[in-house]
Design a protein around this nucleic acid. Sequence first.
DNA 1: CCCAATTTGTTCGTTGGACTAACAAACTCC
DNA 2: GGAGTTTGTTAGTCCAACGAACAAATTGGG
Lengths: 408, 408
Amino acid sequence: MRKIDTQRFVRATRATPRAINRQIALNLVREHQPISRADLARRMDIGRGMVTALVDELLREGSVYEGAVVDAPRGRRPKMLHVRTRDRLVVAIDVRFSLTYVMLSDFDGAPIALESFDTITAPAALVAELAGRVRRLLATHGGARSAARCEGVGVVVPGMVDHRTGRVVYSPQLGWRDVELRAALAHALDLPVHVENAPIACALAQMWLGQRHDAGDFAYMTVSDGVGVGLVVNGEVVRGHGNTAGEFGHVPLNAVSGPRCLCGATGCLEAYTSNLATVSRYLGQELAPAHTRQLLHDTGLTIADVIARASDGDARARAALDETARWLGIGLAVVINTVNPARIVVGGEITAAWDHVVPIIRAAIAARALTTAAAATPIVPEPASEHPRLRGAIALVAAPVYAAPAVA
Amino acid sequence: MRKIDTQRFVRATRATPRAINRQIALNLVREHQPISRADLARRMDIGRGMVTALVDELLREGSVYEGAVVDAPRGRRPKMLHVRTRDRLVVAIDVRFSLTYVMLSDFDGAPIALESFDTITAPAALVAELAGRVRRLLATHGGARSAARCEGVGVVVPGMVDHRTGRVVYSPQLGWRDVELRAALAHALDLPVHVENAPIACALAQMWLGQRHDAGDFAYMTVSDGVGVGLVVNGEVVRGHGNTAGEFGHVPLNAVSGPRCLCGATGCLEAYTSNLATVSRYLGQELAPAHTRQLLHDTGLTIADVIARASDGDARARAALDETARWLGIGLAVVINTVNPARIVVGGEITAAWDHVVPIIRAAIAARALTTAAAATPIVPEPASEHPRLRGAIALVAAPVYAAPAVA
DNA sequence: CCCAATTTGTTCGTTGGACTAACAAACTCC
DNA sequence: GGAGTTTGTTAGTCCAACGAACAAATTGGG
């Protein structure tokens, strides 16, 4: 029941059915590989003749390859189909406040090489450094493989990004405003470049590289320096009219007497549950942006330390985490009541203490969710070891290849 | 960039391009009527030959008719096309706490007849009463017109609705749980019936019957007994995994010391800005569900009275409205920060005092929005006289006729 | 060992509809 | 009244879905 936009519709041409069916076939191969042509025909409910034509096209363009002929109980033995991933390289870049990560992976997200360096905040210098590292990585790892080719570069940035143009509109952490990151990197590397902000990229990674079920309707909440959410509704990511959707971190949970937030308002979810907030609570201080940053810098204390001390039995650390968990639960209840996703994935350092915080989170959700079904919304942690942001960067490159053609 | 759902995709057939282009043509006629075939061809960027074929099909099925031949500066004079609306009837039903409205309208939302009666809360009795009234309306107004035919019935209900099955999952106001409303009405009337909850229906009305621009990305906030939001993202309405999306009324704005809400939690947006909350604030009482309902019943005071007294200069009434406006602004800022819509339409009795409350709302939004663009999100009032919920009921019937075909 | 049965994958003819170009219709202007 | 212009139709071409027949490759039974 989508409305047709009469300003920028896409008319169907003679080639449209082929484009759609080709893409469906590709997705089915991806999900059920290895799969035979005959099985594909059954799943698509079409004749085997058409599958031959569709697969021929996929073979020609190299999205798919023919694997082994396998045994069958009776009849002619089928030649299995696979999506080509191993010799298609993707460069993933994760720019963070302190460190920047560069990863080389295959098309399905399997890592090949990973390196990191201190983030350079000057855009031009950062682009130069990245270009050099990417070229070196591709030369050493790409050159060795016979036909390996780089399909593109995905960049994840903290802050607001106009995905269409690849411009970083505003990033407080990097001190950027209107930086044409895609144009600069694409020019330096002569490769397709995609730029996206962190929570949306993490959601895209779940959607395109995660479990294959139920990926059309969920939320991804990142809890680290900030708190953001990537929303996926009706199989599509929500970017918002001005690329600022998903800022659940600045929902006021206590607009009257809450702590001051970096955004200038009071009582934001982020002011209760960011790593900064948790650590400063442990130190017995209310969050006060400038003062707290200084304090943390002086003590050198991180969220990982607080979690470690809590599991060692430090009562004050436990109390600080409990309080964070309680507010996090309230924040998750807000997501549940407003967009009602099939599930919510939570990423960030707090997942290291998941067993400890999850009962508190669930209790807070139960107290606020409007129906029993909503209260039972699965909340799934994703550990930081999975490199969710780098996987998101890979998804930026992979998604356009598997996405449904835009039509009507 | 939509992901293809490998469980329930829709394969493209030989007839798919025709279905898509036919629908695009229909939408263009609807938006630019009266329009000639040649103009349609230019707008769709296809040959006039194809337009002839497409329009022939639309004419045959009766979605479109040929109107007058109009003058042109030179060349052959074009025969104009219009969408057929006048002899296609729609029944719209709005079930509210105290009154139920039944309206007969044409396909474009122009009212033909409107009546109302005291709501019957027993489902079977309500269905019987509705069926009788609808039959009578169609007999008197439909019979007179030669070929007038009823295209369907739209029903708007306060509470959660499973739109797919037409079941009312839960409605606190009516005291319903799992009522098969669509099945019952469709059986009694032998007409297609669509059921939806109020905020989503209001959003659908904006989308399909409102201004034709920018209808693919906005929010509709209803402020009356409850506070709910209908979200439209990427041209599609957001229903949520369990049909509970859009419940922004229960976002906690003050989880620590806020007023008690009907939902059981404290400090919900609804507890600050519902009509009940505003009136009880005027009476100098904090909201306390059971007690307040009784109080309002005893005094007989309504939100309309408070607004009237405020415009007469009653300082206490003004203060009560100001406070509601302030919290409403914070609530709108939550919508802006989380889904970042192109604009937000506000419906409800409060729109009668719009000139008074809008500066306060805008100030609250400005204080909380994260970017200047987001702070400038247009907030548009829709007066209750427009019957937004009945228009929503009409949209339920009209939408499937104009929607893009589901493909891929 | 050969033939029936079974399953996979290809080929070929039909058909619907997008696309193109020519043509008929209807009008204005000179 | 003919040239020019614009609208709408028609006839022919071609791409791809569709269906059916066929070739390929295997198992099992007589």
